[in-house]
Design a protein around this nucleic acid. Structure first.
Lengths: 337, 337
DNA sequence: GTTAGCCAGTACATCGATATACTAAGCCCA
DNA sequence: TGGGCTTAGTATATCGATGTACTGGCTAAC
């Protein structure tokens, strides 16, 4: 392994000079020829600074963590890609942490934060009040919530969830639906609230009543959605909603499973629209109509904001600029008579 | 942030003693009372060793990378989980690297390997001859291929792919199929070869002829599978295969899409069985019959082997112990007359 | 009464890069 | 001719943990 020492001796300069040349220290003055010698030596030897050593001195490891509540949810794939691309552009490495639920385990907190391995955290779960966020922020580690905001830290990146919900509801209304249900997310999350608020606002815009019985409690998981949908769809055909908008993909799959079990055909007996798109939805039975959210952009913006913060820049609330889009497939259609 | 220095001074001992007590150095002799004082101080102060500093000295960062050719393929989710669990059990952190194809980019090689951030690599792509593997192994970095073997490095973890293929073929034969096609993976990969070999061996066992025209060239992607399947299914109903076994999930989706486009019904006109299972397959149109491979176990074994190697243990070829299982869903049925 | 040996620790160099403080040589101007 | 300034670098402490080599005090055996 080539160290700075080797580069310096080959170039016939001190370690300090080699370091400063390679880093482009503007306060250093060197003859062009010397600079060239250092560059050439580094190049010939394939020198790469050891990030562990430099991390010790600079307190910067060039690593950020992306904390996900449920990495098995395929919708995060895009976000991860966005994060990784943005991070790679700045020479950062990304670690994905599975929070196994709404918060980091103590062991994870140790490994990621307390041991100084990470420069910052991109957190996708952030229930609104979270002692963990406080603890991390309190240690001075930059933390950027994505897909939700926190009252505790400054920055965050969110998508236009209200617009997304509106798109779903507008689409169903245009198809002729009036009894439109909602399969909700966790009420203690910012994103869950905003998607629900968007749904209610859109319904209001169309002068449509929202029956609280049409709203299924959920927590973003398929299992919980399935339970709620079982109840929600048990009503008679004239009482139950003719369409359901689900807060995320696992929730939509729960609704689909419940409809199947009750022998309700989609979209004939029930239209289904989900938030979060994915290529696999094309292959589903039926292919699911979805609101495509800018998940990748959110990841990229979040990573950039976090890295900026790590490098000392201020932080602020940002919203993705790409608007949500509706991808119409086969799970939504006109209500049957 | 609590450092060893603080712990030592609080316990009234030297840094060296504090370090050796906390690490359980057996060559150190201390009075129980002193040991207690150190432990108590560390505990009170919530001391956690800084992994960057210790990594500099020990040349061990406690980080491994999992390199995937195509992280968007949902089948890797399980593997990642297995890797992460095994790694967490040994206090290691996992970085997922997207190889964007069959090899690491130069930039990734820099970031992961040359900068000394990783203790080892778990590599899932490994085409059989790979100058990259040679380069990494040549630098002395432990590297364990999973899902394939390499002639260049010693260890590896693979699944029983032959048995998996046999399961798929046996199932189709039992349903009454005789013209069973195969949508292949890359021929220059170990796993692609073994799955194909398993298919051919199983066909031979049943005294079934393999027509080379039934074998679609593939590279594990949906796009390529789609192209091959378009050609493969263009034959007349008496010539084309009545069933296809696909080498992995994206390939199966490609076949499905091609069948759709040709208005072939699954399973009535064409049975489809895929390697790699996932909960989402239950929701597909039609729900896909699949061979469930022990992907999580492979990940866990790989991670353990890699970490053993990092810590100096020898390395060997290992095969997962859990046998593949067939999950019968709706995409496979008897051939139509 | 001396010395070997053990107990209970300590001092210090080290990993590799970085950042601050410093210096030697040369030049200019008074 | 000497003081100051610029140029072109260098010396060294530092980040925090680790590990080897060492030491002072005490006991026990001869």
């Amino acid at each position: 392994m080539t160290t700075l020492k080797v580069v310096a001796s080959r170039a016939g300069v001190s370690i300090a000079t080699a370091a400063r040349v390679l880093q482009g220290d503007p306060t250093l003055s060197v003859r062009p020829a010397t600079r060239e010698r250092v560059m050439a030596a580094a190049n010939d030897l394939g020198y790469r600074p050891n990030r562990v050593a430099s991390g010790l001195r600079t307190r910067r490891t060039g690593t950020i963590a992306l904390v996900l509540p449920d990495p098995q949810n395929v919708a995060w794939g895009e976000t991860l890609r966005g994060v990784e691309r943005a991070a790679a552009g700045r020479e950062y490495v990304v670690v994905v942490a599975d929070a196994h639920g709404p918060t980091l385990s103590a062991q994870q907190l140790d490994r990621f934060v307390l041991e100084g391995r990470m420069d910052g955290l991109l957190v996708a779960f952030a229930t609104i009040v979270d002692e963990l966020v406080a603890q991390i922020a309190g240690r001075g580690l930059p933390l950027v919530p994505i897909n939700s905001r926190s009252t505790i830290v400054d920055g965050s990146v969110t998508m236009d969830d209200e617009a997304g919900s509106r798109l779903a509801v507008d689409h169903l209304v245009q198809l002729g639906h009036r009894r439109i249900g909602f399969l909700a997310g966790r009420a203690d999350t910012d994103v869950g609230r905003r998607r629900e608020a968007g749904y209610r606002a859109a319904m209001a815009t169309h002068d449509l009543r929202v029956d609280e019985a049409w709203i299924g409690a959920g927590d973003f998981t398929e299992r919980r959605a399935r339970e709620s949908a079982d109840r929600l769809l048990a009503w008679s055909a004239r009482e139950r909603p003719t369409a359901i908008y689900a807060v995320n993909l696992p929730s939509a799959l729960g609704v689909r499973a419940a409809a199947r079990a009750l022998h309700l055909r989609i979209p004939d007996d029930l239209s289904l629209v989900t938030m979060d798109d994915h290529a696999l939805l094309e292959h589903m039975d039926p292919a699911l109509t979805a609101v495509r959210m800018p998940m990748e952009e959110m990841g990229a913006l979040g990573a950039r904001m976090l890295i900026d913060a790590v490098e000392g820049a201020p932080i602020s609330h940002v919203r993705t600029s790409s608007p949500p889009e509706l991808v119409i497939r086969l799970s939504s259609g006109p209500p049957s008579a």
